[in-house]
Simulated scan of single mutants.
Amino acid sequence: MAAHTAHLGTVQETLLIPLYGRAVETRKQNAALRDPRAEEIVASIDYDFTRFDNLPSLIGTVLRTSVFDRWVADFLTTRPTGTVVEIGTGLNTRYERVADGQARWFDLDLPDVIELRRRFFSDAERRTMLAASVTDETWTDVVAAQSDGPYFFAAEAVLPFLEERDVRHVIDLLADRFPGSLLALDTAGPGVIDTQDEHDALSKVDARMRWSCADPPRLADWRPGAHLLASHTLTSLPPRLHDELPASYRQMLSGLAVQRLPQVEEYRLNLIRLP
């Protein structure tokens, strides 16, 4: 297979970290998640992925993705013909992991990412790639025109890289255009933001997170009527998901829970129902 060069912007380069995390995880005998497509994509991109070898954060990205997978799967269980929008889709393969062909699916990311993504994925009858910034209102017109909802928006490893004013704009945009929708997002507290230069993975790239969120429940206050349905750290995963992890992972997470490291406890995975 010919190698593809990844011409990506500074923040966009970070999509290669969870991609590599899923590829590495897939090779393990006892894996928390399997994604053979990620292995294929990593093998075909001309990039020095070895800079991320043996980093604990790779496991963190896999656990985060597993939580988002579970939330999307639960949504589609009750709303099989609903609409899922992957905000900052990168080279994610969530559609391959959880979709059953009935849902309407949109993969949204910046133009350089979608250009790379199109080398590995194609639009289909119920699946469409959108090249736009999440802060640009035009993509919401396309989603609203081509689907009826209900809607689930998955923003994994995206919003912390924006300024707070832009995060507020995105939440307002989603609430105004798609009332009653679900939004999954991760948040990083000040202990995470302040130690990025020492972060095992982010220290290997130039991108840095900008939005600090110390208290995720307060996100619901941004829009009257919004509700925080769930908020988890990597050491307080949903019980059903935690119990399905390999024993070595459960043991590792128990040890991290005792240490209560700010870099771990201030990073949260959240599910919000918008008004």
Rank of each mutant, 00 (worst) to 15 (best):
A175H: 05
R165G: 06
W211T: 12
D186G: 01
W139S: 05
A175K: 02
M209P: 11
A188Q: 06
L182Q: 05
P160H: 02
Q146M: 11
C213W: 04
L185R: 01
S147W: 10
A220M: 05
C213I: 13
A157K: 08
E163Q: 07
R208W: 07
V205F: 07
M209D: 10
A132W: 13
A132C: 14
A154Q: 06
A207I: 15
T138P: 15
W211V: 01
D172F: 00
S147P: 13
Y151N: 04
G191E: 05
R177H: 09
D200L: 07
H199L: 07
E163G: 04
V158Y: 02
P150V: 08
E156M: 11
F152M: 13
E137I: 13
A214F: 08
A144S: 14
A207W: 11
L173C: 00
D136H: 14
S133W: 12
D206H: 14
P217R: 08
P160Q: 05
L202M: 14
W139Q: 12
V205L: 12
L182R: 10
A220I: 07
I171F: 05
L219C: 03
S133E: 13
A132Y: 15
L182V: 06
L159C: 04
F161K: 01
V134E: 09
I193Y: 07
G180E: 10
V205W: 11
V192D: 09
V192G: 09
H169L: 09
D186R: 01
R168H: 02
D215C: 09
L173V: 00
L182S: 04
T138S: 15
V158F: 04
C213F: 05
G180C: 05
C213P: 08
P190E: 03
Q146L: 15
P179K: 05
D197H: 15
V143Q: 14
D176L: 00
T187N: 02
L202H: 12
S181M: 04
T135V: 10
T138A: 12
V143L: 11
D197G: 01
A220K: 15
T140V: 15
T195I: 04
T195V: 14
D221L: 11
T187F: 01
D141L: 15
D215H: 12
P150L: 07
I171Y: 00
S147R: 03
L202D: 13
D136V: 08
E198P: 02
T195Q: 09
G189A: 08
D136R: 08
S181E: 03
A155N: 06
C213K: 04
R208Y: 09
Q196E: 13
R210D: 04
D186N: 10
A214V: 11
L185W: 03
E198D: 15
A220T: 09
D176T: 14
D221A: 15
F161Q: 02
R168Q: 04
D221S: 11
L162Q: 01
R218Y: 03
D194R: 12
A144Y: 13
